[in-house]
Amino acid sequence: MKNTVFPGVLVVAGLAAGVAGATTLEDVQARGKLNCGINTGLVGFAAPDANGEWSGFDVAYCRALAAAVLGDPTAIEFVSLTGKTRFTALASGEIDALSRNTTWTYSRDVDLKFTFVGVNYYDGQGFIVPKALGVNSAKELDGATVCIQTGTTTELNLADFFRANNIGYEPVPIETNAEAQQQYLAGACDTYTTDASGLAATRATFEDPSAHTILPEIISKEPLGPLVRHGDDQWADIARWTLNALIAAEEFGVTSANVDEMASAPTDNPEVNRLLGTEGNLGEMIGLPADWAVKAIKAGGNYGEIFERTIGESTPVGLARGLNAQWAEGGLMYAPPFR
């Protein structure tokens, strides 16, 4: 499809690229670009730098997927989506995959007809309080004023938690995370609640982070992961196993630094060989070149490398691996075998 961008004819030239019948993989390859839905801006997960280059934890998955499918981690059209526009963009085919800190829930999977291809970050809702408040547990927050973003699942989780523990609270509705930071620092609320990853990122920006503490209670499960549309299982498999390849690569010690060397000749570990395409025909099964996983890993490193670079303890966000450690290290990251 020739990409004419003059708006006057876009009305006319709208009906381009007949999709009927073509698979998502064929569409993406014909287009030469992956349309990947990301956040309009979330610390550590998706943010543009001064040159307009996107980076972050969710963005890294898009790049790995583009590398696996097209062999080029930069062959991406990033489509920034808000919480309200993300699902229609995916359902209507505007994007091929959505990697936008989206919680995997029953109704999104079943009712909205999406396929979650896995979990790339296990999050949960927490509370941040000033140390001066002297609170050590969320259950001591009886009667507290709580800053809460409206229209999110966090609002419902909060109501559930306080009702289950039979304590009262006073909500202070706010719209955005930036507003919440200001309100919380100005003392408009005793505590601010959102996903724990967001709380950590928020606390890192305070003038004196040590004066604030994140309470130990995590009151909800927020498994965040990439998703695709129902109806194209091959594409869902590609998206799923790209994520799994990144997780497995960490487990087997394949990094962006040594992947070329390990892929150049078969190693002692047969599963690594299958993953990197030096043995077996896993790539052919999924409709991709044999070295698809090599390219995905080279794009931004394995899961652990991506985590450390974007949201890990060495970054200002400073998240510990916690639940997101490999299963062998007590976490939940567990890639099914490449066989």
């Binding site: 998706a46 890192a204 920006t205």
Partner: peptide
Amino acid sequence: SNAIRADTNWNGIV
């Protein structure tokens, strides 16, 4: 301005 705040360097600037 939201996207810029999402950069870890500038998070917290309003």
